[in-house]
Structures are given as C-alpha cells and as structure tokens.
Amino acid sequence: MSEKMKTIMDYDTVALDEERHALAIIDQTQLPYRTEILYLTTQKEIWNAIYLLQVRGAPAIGVSAAIGIYLAAREIQADHFEEFYRQFQEAKDYLDSSRPTAVNLSWALKRQEQVVLANRERSVPEIVEALHQEALNIREEDIRVCRAIGENGLTLVKPGDGLLTHCNAGKLAAVKYGTATAPMYLGQERGYGFRIYADETRPLLQGARLTAYELQESGLDVTLLCDNMSAAAMRNGWINAVFVGCDRVAANGDTANKIGTSLVALAAKRYHIPFYVCAPTSTIDMETATGGDIHIEQRKDYEVTEMWYERRMAPEGVKVFNPAFDVTDNDLITGIVTEYGVAKAPYKEAFEEIFRKKMKE
C-alpha cells in the first residue's frame, strides 16, 4: 500500500509485523516513484524479496533473515527437538541460498541456529519464542551499531567536507542510519553542512534511485554523479573523503561491495583522497582469507541490456558480464570503520583487536 503524506524516512526499512506474523519491508524496487510496504509470510516470498533486491544491503538482509527464519520456525510442526531442528535447517539453508555474497545473511541465520541449539532441552514453543526475541534483538542491535559507525566515521571528517559514496549503504540498507551514510546523517544533526556526491551505481541504479532519494528526502545537500564522473569530481577538488559500505570483509582487509567500488578506490588513491569502508563487525568474515575467496554473485543479462530502458539498448545475443560486486584490495583502503573503532592496516591484527573489544561487552 502507498501513503502520500509520509517521506521515506518515516517508514521502517525492515520490521516484524506482530499482528500479521510477517516480515514487513519497503519494496526498494519501486523507489523512488512509489513507497510500497510488503508483508511477507512465506519462505518463498522472503527468498524472492532478498534475491530480487526488494530488500537489500548487508544489515537489512541480516535482519530480514533473522525475522524470516523465526517466521519459518513458527510453521514447523514437530513434537520433539530432532524433527524441529531438521526442518529448521532446511529453512535456514533455503534462505541462505538467496544472496551468497552478503555475509550478514549467513551470520544472522547461524546466530539464530545457535539460539535453537542453546535451547534444545526446552519445548518447541519455547524455542520459537527464543527465536522471536533474538530476531528483535538483532534488529535493535543494527540501529545501535550503525549509529556507532556514524560516530566513529564522523571523527575522520570536518564540517563542510565533500563526501562521495557508491551504491546505497544508507537507511534503506539497514534499519536506521545506514553504514556509509551514518556519518552524513549524524553530521546533518550537528550542522556539519556536508556536500554529498552519490554515484548512480549501474546497472541497478541504487545510488540514483535510493541514496540520492533518501538523502534528498532527509534534507542533505546531495549531487548525483554518473559512475564514470567520480574521478572528475575528485580532480576538481570537490571530494574530501569517500565512504562506502560492503557486503563482506575478508580477514586481510579486502572488501566486497557493489560493482564499481574498486574503481572509486583506485581514483581516490590517485588523487590522495581517504577511502573508508563502513562495516559492522558482523560483516567481517575471519574465515575468508582474502578477497579472492569471496564468492561473487552473477546477475542476469537483462539488468544491463534492457532494464530501465523503453527499448533494448544492446544488440541481441551480445555476451554480458554482470557481477553484482567487485573486490577492493586492502591497499586501496584507508580504514575500515566499525562500531568498535576504525581498523587500519595490517587488518588481520586490527580486526583481532576489534573483536577483543567486542568480547569484553
């Protein structure tokens, strides 16, 4: 359904609708023309929403997965733990197959699995309620984590700076604040007067449709750039820092983010502009050694050749290379901004220190 009186900032990106027993999301494929809230109750609906990018962004995908697997657990008919756990694992594996690059998907599902295992001596209804509470916890944690990333990111810039971002790592990619946009939103609250530059982000235009939209709706000074314009903006002296999000961080500090991110990093290094990746610790995958070990999702050809056009804009039968992500090598990254501080090279040691801080909480 659509409501004309609200702005996009008045809606929850991801939520659990308790009355409907549904995952409630903003359908991001309809933005910026129309704000539609989807209420998803079946696993197929939730799988499709993640795969089709109706819900997207690592934090939002993680929260959706946590709620989705809880909803799946509610439907399991089992009198004893073994049968419940078997069906739970089937649902978990199914949801996990929707977006392989986004580590928050598997992270949230594994976290919910640990809840199941920790409560194996309890009744099935009690296990389901524990999953319910953990899903709500994960959602609230996302808000706290993104705000902390914003606070840490804000220490790296000064009022009046020009900030460039790629893709959408904003409110629409999380529950609130976003990751790469969190310093921008907090800066706006404090009168920093940032000038924001948003790459359009071909081929799915998340920067044009989502980032430019949500920042403008929020009253920030935002300028939209075609992807091949960012180097020119840097050369002009308009950009003081780059903030991007990511879907997975390898143990060595390589990061996977939306396709085109590595080109922004290369240009930033050429023009001596700091390049920061904003990443919740849930996105850091210490079991993945390098960026070369990250599975990169390949998308459909039509996203490049036909989507957004009234007529096909490429010859029939032409081959298309359409990876959803690319890997930014760690030597191009100035720092990785987490909720526990800013990690800098050597990254493996920096991450270990950050996880030590996290364990002390």
Results as ranks from 00 to 15, higher is better:
Thr7Leu: 08
Asp12Val: 00
Asp17Met: 02
Ala24Ser: 14
Asp27Val: 01
Gln28Pro: 13
Tyr33Val: 13
Glu36Lys: 15
Ile37Leu: 13
Tyr39Arg: 10
Leu40Arg: 02
Gly57Gln: 02
Gly62Arg: 02
Ser64Tyr: 10
Ala65Arg: 01
Ala66Trp: 05
Ala73His: 03
Ala73Ile: 01
Glu75Ser: 05
Gln77Ala: 14
Asp79Pro: 12
Asp96Cys: 08
Arg99Cys: 14
Pro100Thr: 10
Asn104Glu: 13
Leu105Ser: 06
Leu109His: 01
Leu117Gly: 12
Ser123Gln: 13
Val124His: 06
Pro125His: 10
Glu129Phe: 15
Asn137His: 10
Arg144Phe: 06
Ala148Asp: 14
Ile149His: 06
Thr165Glu: 04
Cys167Tyr: 05
Leu172Gly: 07
Lys176Thr: 04
Pro183Ala: 04
Gln188Asn: 15
Phe194Asp: 06
Asp199Arg: 00
Thr201Ala: 15
Pro203Cys: 04
Gln206Ser: 02
Gln216Glu: 14
Asn228Lys: 13
Ala233Met: 15
Ile239Gly: 00
Val244Leu: 07
Val244Thr: 11
Asp247Gly: 04
Val249Gln: 09
Asp254Lys: 00
Thr255Gly: 01
Ala256His: 02
Val264Asn: 00
Ser282Glu: 14
Ser282Met: 05
Ile284Arg: 10
Asp285Glu: 10
Thr290Glu: 05
Glu297Asn: 00
Gln298Ser: 09
Gln298Trp: 02
Val304Glu: 11
Met307Gln: 05
Met307Val: 11
Glu316Met: 11
Lys319Ile: 11
Val327Gly: 03
Asp329Ser: 11
Asp331Arg: 12
Glu339Thr: 03
Pro346Phe: 01
Glu349Ser: 15
Phe351Cys: 08
Phe351Ala: 04
Glu353Asn: 13
Lys358Cys: 09
Met359Pro: 03
